[in-house]
Amino acid sequence: MAPVRTPAELVAAARAGDRRATARLLTVLENQRADDDGTASAIAGLVKGGDAQVVGITGSPGVGKSTLVSALIGAWRAASLRVAVLAVDPSSPFTGGAILGDRVRMADHALDPGVYIRSVATRGHLGGLAATTGAAVRLLEGLDFDVVIVETVGVGQAEVEIASLADTTLLLLAPGMGDGIQAVKAGVVEIADVYVVNKADRPGADAAVRDLRAMMSLVRREPYEWRQPICTTVASEGKGLEELVAAIGKHHDWLAGGDRLAEKRRARAAAEIRARLDAALRVRFAVPEALAAAVADGEVDVASAVRRVLGDTG
């Protein structure tokens, strides 16, 4: 049996490129509970700092998020940057399990020591992310990765939490899928820093770009505010990647030009606290089966049931 390594030994091994050590560190953070033995806190104290560029990628299912992530990994690795990916997958509401299949599309990078890919289950958390994603991002930053990519579930209208987690958020659209109308209806368009029309070799790509430009024309921007660029890509063929990487870099430079990047990081910390609170409250205020049955039978109204769960019967 292999000896149990201390948090300091795990961090040192992870920084040296040991993927198992990195995986172990992330597992400790994902499974952290309020009554843990302090291991997660010790790990957090050892990985303070880091200045990774955090890039969030969101969009409806089928627009090619995982394929684009794979292409971006290749582009950043060509520039000798270390890249980590957190691919968030939805958990089953019945079994709690997740498919965790995004790594299949990123198999080309599986043996690259400069790339670490982790699939993460949402475990019931809403907003397109897992409750522990923020902690995982900070850990990977502290392990000296240059870029951390967070690929969201792809749930569409509810998926706006990524904007507070990432430094730069990409919104992916694809021609012929009604994404332009979806973006307007959901307001998702407002969270993006860079728009990406992927699968741009398909009919309707030009129309998708025109729709985005029309939407952007309706939003007033001050001269000092960021104006979202529109990039077109064919991720499966690597087309448009150079322009997209340049747009991401330009946005990061804009953030770093003032207090904007620090403000983003503070917002990320606040979002993580809220996510952890939400997860803790779900456990602490679980709904008893008997109470749910009483509401279903009409014996108790919902407002009274909520007060009972909260312990307020007054």
Rank of each mutant, 00 (worst) to 15 (best):
L46M: 06
T27L: 06
R19Q: 11
I57S: 07
L68H: 14
Q32L: 06
V54K: 00
G56Y: 08
A75H: 14
S60L: 13
D36K: 03
A34E: 13
S70Y: 01
S80D: 15
L46Q: 02
A42H: 15
G17P: 00
V54A: 05
D18T: 00
L81N: 14
N31I: 08
A84E: 04
V69K: 05
S70R: 15
Q53G: 12
V54H: 02
D35W: 13
A71V: 01
L26W: 00
R15S: 07
I57F: 01
G45C: 04
T58Q: 03
G45Y: 01
A42D: 15
T67H: 04
S60M: 06
A44F: 01
R82A: 07
S66L: 13
G17Q: 10
N31L: 06
G50D: 14
D35C: 04
G56F: 10
V54L: 01
K48C: 10
K65C: 12
A87W: 06
V83L: 03
G56C: 11
A42I: 15
R20L: 09
D35P: 08
K65D: 02
L68T: 12
S66N: 09
D35K: 00
A44K: 11
G17H: 13
V28E: 02
R19M: 08
L10G: 05
L68N: 06
K48W: 06
K48H: 07
A23N: 10
D37A: 08
G38E: 14
L72D: 09
G56D: 02
D18S: 08
G45L: 10
A40D: 06
E30Q: 10
L46I: 14
G49Y: 12
K65F: 12
A21E: 09
T22E: 14
E9P: 01
I43V: 15
V47D: 03
D37R: 03
A14H: 00
A14P: 00
A42G: 15
R33S: 09
S70M: 04
R77D: 07
L81P: 11
D35Q: 05
A14F: 04
A87R: 09
S70A: 15
L86I: 04
Q53V: 11
S41K: 12
A23Q: 09
G74D: 07
A21P: 03
R20M: 01
A21V: 10
A34D: 10
D35L: 03
L72G: 06
L81E: 15
R33T: 14
R33E: 08
A40S: 10
L81Y: 14
S60D: 14
R82T: 09
A84G: 05
V54C: 02
R15P: 03
I73D: 00
G17C: 07
L26I: 01
